[in-house]
Design a binder for these strands. Structure first.
Lengths: 242, 242
DNA sequence: ATAAGTTATGGTCAATCTGACAATTATTTC
DNA sequence: GAAATAATTGTCAGATTGACCATAACTTAT
């Protein structure tokens, strides 16, 4: 016991001077996207053992010189090629046997990506990343399936009281797109006029002059989310609720 | 880098066979209690360096043979003397410099304790633990103040859509106690008849024959939370909201 | 024993919100 | 120009909310 402790102390002293990773601690990212009116998750084909070649959550190790948020932002950028995405910590997962061979505890973040905001196809490993419908996920290794379920339930909860859904839509969108987003994530249908009324009453959408194009019916007006208005309303005590 | 990696691998192989801790990873607990109509946090006077003798969150290290939840439950039991308290993970805190000397990442849980459900005074270190009003906290070391703030905001959010407040009340309580709990945590006042109406409509409280005693006015009926009814209502799609 | 003080508990009412759904409008395609 | 498809506006009854009034019940002071 004493010996082990010293060993470990030495290990850290050595490691902290280099640019090395904190060994038993990893970060994983659950990256959500919204496409074809469906909620999707970005998975990555593992290029190392264990679970070589299996679709899994993108992850990596935390370095000694970065905090956890930065580590996950780095991993996220490595996969999507984009910085500054919406990101929030889900929590730490640390079952003793969650990872084979040695004890690894992972801190999970979930991220929201707008369509076109990522460019996974630009990397050298284009075929190694792909979107999967949340409802039709492939088998994932370790506890990743549990993690994704947990991330989805956190996303639903958040969506109820924060307007984070806009991070899954393009900057300009018709009202129906927003409605379909909520319908896909909550798994329920809303009445179109009622949904419109509720959203519009919040005064968080700026109507644009532009309209939808390329649709085979009356085109809808486009809107954009008014973040600055949201911030100022929130300060005054406004509470977003869906 | 390669050398370091091997060092660390060896370290883990050795350590995982012993009963040792995972060195750079700790757990901390934010333990909430409700007393005298005020929300309080249980702090512990540190008996080791750094920050020796300073009031801080009770914490400890995670062992190789226990998952994170168990580690925090153990720490919680060591402080309160009680098992099986309501507990939920808040997340991991990992700023590079959050702990002096070496890099320690901590996983934080928050717990809710009913009055009389703990017996901190029974331990050998009775004077080393005490309750502090959330609004009048002493100076705490490291990032503990930030952690408590974060725990409080999580508690508020949870309280909105889950009836976890009952974990802060005795098994039998008058309606006003429940109202004062919500008032203390949200920092707002509710109208008494309206609060009663809203709560009673949910059908989650079982009215008892017993009444309050020892009060200098009309005594109120006592109620208890009906957990089984909550579970079955929830299954049917009932959503608790305050 | 009675009055005063205090909280419990039950009700009312107008304003607002919600859910269901009818009706009309604007585009595109056939 | 008709048909098809959504967009958009409007209506209405029922439920919910917030403000507040009134009465009941119990304890303590006199």
């Amino acid at each position: 016991m004493t010996i082990t402790y010293f060993l470990c102390k030495n290990f850290h002293q050595f490691a902290s001077m280099s640019n090395d990773i904190i060994d038993p601690l990893s970060v994983d990212c659950v990256i959500f996207g919204f496409e074809d009116a469906r909620l999707k998750v970005l998975l990555y084909k593992r290029s190392i053992e264990p679970a070589f070649g299996v679709w899994a959550l993108p992850g990596g190790f935390i370095r000694y010189d970065e905090n956890i948020a930065k580590a996950s932002a780095r991993v996220l950028e490595e996969v999507t090629g984009v910085k500054g995405l919406f990101m929030e910590q889900l929590g730490a997962f640390g079952e003793v046997d969650r990872f084979p061979g040695r004890r690894v505890i992972t801190v999970v973040y979930y991220a929201l990506v707008k369509p076109g905001q990522y460019n996974i196809n630009l990397g050298p490993n284009a075929s190694d990343a792909d979107w999967f419908e949340v409802k039709k996920l492939p088998d994932t290794p370790f506890d990743h399936s549990k993690i994704i379920t947990s991330a989805l339930s956190r996303l639903r909860r958040q969506l109820k009281y924060k307007p984070i859904g806009f991070n899954l839509l393009p900057d300009k969108f018709p009202l129906l797109a927003l409605q379909e987003l909520y319908e896909a994530i909550f798994g329920v249908d809303f009445d179109k006029p009622n949904f419109r009324r509720k959203i519009m009453k919040m005064n968080l959408l700026i109507p644009l002059q532009e309209k939808q194009t390329g649709v085979a019916h009356r085109s809808a007006r486009l809107y954009k989310f008014d973040k600055s208005r949201y911030d100022s309303l929130t300060e005054k005590g406004f509470i977003f609720e869906m």
